[in-house]
Write a protein that binds this DNA or RNA. Structure first.
Length: 279
DNA sequence: CCTTGAACCTGGGCGC
DNA sequence: TGCGCCCAGGTTCAAG
């Protein structure tokens, strides 16, 4: 996709969760993609005119890539548009050195959305403004989190899910990171900060667990659930290595623990944890 | 300020 | 077989 020219951006409906921004198709047409980036859970597509397309997959969105000319043969198969295909909402028709290809945005539940902004004004885009540091970079540290969590009675789970504290952690990875660091999700965020505002030992452990969870998930190819798939159509398989997420009533996987995974609801989201080894 | 809850949307799974 | 209900994912916004 990088380096390719967008022959046409085809929007097959006027909105996802929000309307597509005014003039998106016209702005994208004929432009070259100079870079692909990511911030938190937003995909950033940099065009050669200084525009950046901002795309979020929501909960059920995915991109898939098709190469070669369109094989939309007329005739008997035309009526048989697959269930999946009807949720193809945006199609980037690309022209690259290797010929035509398409990058297709599919989103059955339409919780995703797209926006566009001038690259020079990205930080003030409403979706990107105020996001915390990436969990994979040096900016995330125990000392930083201690500053953010000091004095907060908010449950640890909710604080970690807050994108203003750390950008890009979702429900699954927060549950997994807390389990790895043996921390109870209902603890106050401030309980990992000393009276003098320094991170506790447990905070250090939490930060390294967050890094490890993300690294392991990337290595394993992502966490797509159920019908949610990879760009090549295969299922992400990190879901097979969840330690607590979606394991209610199953044995805790901490060696020698013997506990049973519980499910509670915090701020309207499911939290899975082991009441025995997470304290 | 902090915290919770509803809304957005669809399809899969389950109980009857 | 089908209907109705609940649930999942992420983010914003309104209300307590």
């Amino acid at each position: 996709m990088e380096g390719a020219r967008i022959a046409r951006l085809e929007l097959r409906r006027k909105d996802l969760r929000f309307p597509f921004p005014e003039g998106l198709e016209a702005r994208a047409a004929g432009r070259r993609i100079v870079a692909l980036g990511r911030r938190a859970k937003y995909l950033l597509i940099d065009l050669d005119d200084g525009t950046t397309i901002i795309s979020h997959l929501g909960m059920s969105g995915s991109f898939r890539i098709e190469t070669g000319p369109v094989t939309d043969a007329p005739g008997e198969f035309h009526h048989a548009r697959s269930k999946d295909e009807k949720h193809d909402h945006a199609i980037f028709h690309l022209e690259g050195p290797a010929g035509p290809s398409r990058v297709i945005y599919n989103d059955p539940r339409r919780f995703g959305f797209m926006d566009m902004a001038e690259r020079t004004a990205l930080e003030v885009n409403p979706f990107l403004f105020g996001l915390g540091p990436e969990p994979t970079g040096n900016e995330l540290s125990a000392a930083y989190l201690a500053r953010r969590f000091a004095g907060k009675a908010q449950p640890l789970k909710s604080a970690l899910l807050d994108q203003k504290n750390i950008a890009g952690l979702g429900n699954i990875y927060v549950c997994e990171a807390l389990w790895r660091s043996h921390l109870k999700p209902t603890r106050a965020a401030a309980s990992l900060v000393t009276k003098t505002g320094r991170p506790t030992q447990q905070m250090e452990l939490l930060v390294s667990s967050i890094r490890d969870v993300i690294a392991d998930a990337i290595k394993a190819g992502g966490s797509s659930l159920r019908d949610h798939i990879q760009t090549d159509g295969s299922l992400g398989y990190f879901q097979h290595s969840f330690s607590v997420y979606d394991r209610e009533s199953l044995p805790c996987r901490t060696p020698g623990c013997g506990g049973t995974v519980a499910r509670i609801v915090q701020a309207g989201r499911s939290t899975f944890y082991c009441p025995v080894c997470q304290k």
